[in-house]
Deep mutational scan, measured.
Amino acid sequence: MAAGGDHGSPDSYRSPLASRYASPEMCFVFSDRYKFRTWRQLWLWLAEAEQTLGLPITDEQIQEMKSNLENIDFKMAAEEEKRLRHDVMAHVHTFGHCCPKAAGIIHLGATSCYVGDNTDLIILRNALDLLLPKLARVISRLADFAKERASLPTLGFTHFQPAQLTTVGKRCCLWIQDLCMDLQNLKRVRDDLRFRGVKGTTGTQASFLQLFEGDDHKVEQLDKMVTEKAGFKRAFIITGQTYTRKVDIEVLSVLASLGASVHKICTDIRLLANLKEMEEPFEKQQIGSSAMPYKRNPMRSERCCSLARHLMTLVMDPLQTASVQWFERTLDDSANRRICLAEAFLTADTILNTLQNISEGLVVYPKVIERRIRQELPFMATENIIMAMVKAGGSRQDCHEKIRVLSQQAASVVKQEGGDNDLIERIQVDAYFSPIHSQLDHLLDPSSFTGRASQQVQRFLEEEVYPLLKPYESVMKVKAELCL
């Protein structure tokens, strides 16, 4: 049975990233139509530049190519590739079939990587351009969430054990800070992308030097003109047959890092959902379990974690691919890159769409948070109580021993009897502590235990987050809708 299948058929496997999760716009960027249309555009740009620099290419040939950029006979191309065992030459023939007058000058002087690699770089750039505003929107939604809850005390956790208090907004800023680093890295790697350009079979530009009869300047002009037509500021000066596969490492490393950030955020949300302090959106008709109707599973956060793990592992592909590119190139890269580049971007696209949807509907339960604080705060307040007693004339050592005994009794009630923490009640009825009984409410005010959390939130948002989001103001209103 021949390899390949009808990918629109229910009898043929289709990647869930495309069929179930990723956005239509990201799927289109990695589609065959987008790819092969870009090949034709690159052939047109090459012909236009070659004509401008004096090669015998007519206006009629150029116009014929322009008129057929979208006229792609995919069936013919597939048949040609089956016959020739070469995808680029299959599309040269297919393009030439609908451009008979231009057929002889299509791909003039070029090698397969002229269309293959340059198209990949265009796709990487455009895919990054799709991700950047999506990530900015996630940051914006979380920034709104953090600002609104900047002063809401909550129990902090280290080692997932109760620690000092923080605020809900401050905790959210930990998430935002990681995503801001990801946004900066995505922008950097996007701006650092260079075009492969017009380089020939081993990167020496020998074929173009021959076409222009040894004119170095025209060869350099050709490279520059096509690079500018493709919208790049610069091209690699040095290439082998391909652009260095280190570029793929750079791009997928940034995406993998984004995956790590999203995994951490969504894990926190899942843990908070278990504590009943916070939940992701839950639709009115949504079913959490087929057997347990009360369940409210954090399905979206779980999906993000599941896909983020996949995204983090994909960076190993370009690392290994770059390491086995012998001399000017081997074909070890080809099949692998067809999979890992598309999957990385479709996965990143999915987790950003999902995280935006989550961040637009996060639900906080202040009463649950308050109750958990009441359970733990008495123990945390013991040092403040000791200091207040010393100020009232008591002995630190005597007070410490009193607190120690009462704390152990209260802990026994919590752990052995399943009761509430009654340390404060014990202190309130103990005559030894009568000098500070009137101060206990103040000493137990949760806001006095959150330090500068709310001020940190305000400063972080104003100095770091809002300036970073400013270039994306025009796209901030787009909502994230999930079908599944």
Score class of each variant (00 low, 15 high):
G5L: 08
S9P: 10
A22C: 15
S23A: 09
D32K: 15
D32V: 11
R37A: 15
L42I: 10
L46V: 04
A47M: 02
L55M: 13
L55D: 02
T58K: 14
T58S: 13
E60R: 10
Q61S: 09
E64F: 06
L69A: 13
E70M: 15
F74C: 14
A77S: 13
A78C: 10
E80S: 13
R83L: 11
R85W: 08
R85S: 03
M89S: 06
H93N: 14
C99Q: 07
A102Q: 01
A103W: 09
G104P: 14
G109W: 01
T119K: 04
L132S: 13
K134C: 13
R149V: 10
L155F: 03
A163G: 14
A163L: 01
C173E: 02
C173V: 04
D178A: 03
Q184D: 14
L186E: 03
D191N: 13
L193T: 09
F195E: 03
G197T: 02
T201A: 01
T204V: 09
A206N: 11
S207N: 02
Q210H: 05
D216S: 12
V219T: 10
A230F: 05
K246C: 05
D248A: 02
V251L: 13
S253P: 02
L255P: 03
L258A: 11
G259Y: 01
A260D: 02
K264R: 12
I265A: 11
R270C: 00
E280M: 09
K284E: 10
Q285E: 11
S290W: 03
Y294Q: 03
R296I: 07
S301K: 05
R303I: 05
M312W: 02
S323Y: 05
S323H: 08
F327G: 10
E328F: 06
T330N: 05
L331W: 01
D333I: 00
N336K: 05
R338F: 03
R338N: 01
E343Y: 12
E343P: 10
F345K: 03
V364L: 09
V368A: 04
R372V: 01
F379T: 03
I385V: 12
M387D: 01
A388G: 08
A392F: 08
S395A: 08
D398V: 12
D398M: 14
R404I: 06
L406A: 10
S407K: 04
Q408C: 12
K415Q: 02
Q416E: 09
Q416P: 04
D422F: 09
D430P: 02
D430I: 09
Y432V: 07
L440E: 09
L440Y: 06
L440P: 01
T450I: 12
T450K: 07
Q458R: 10
E462P: 05
P471A: 15
Y472D: 12
E481K: 13
E481I: 09
C483P: 15
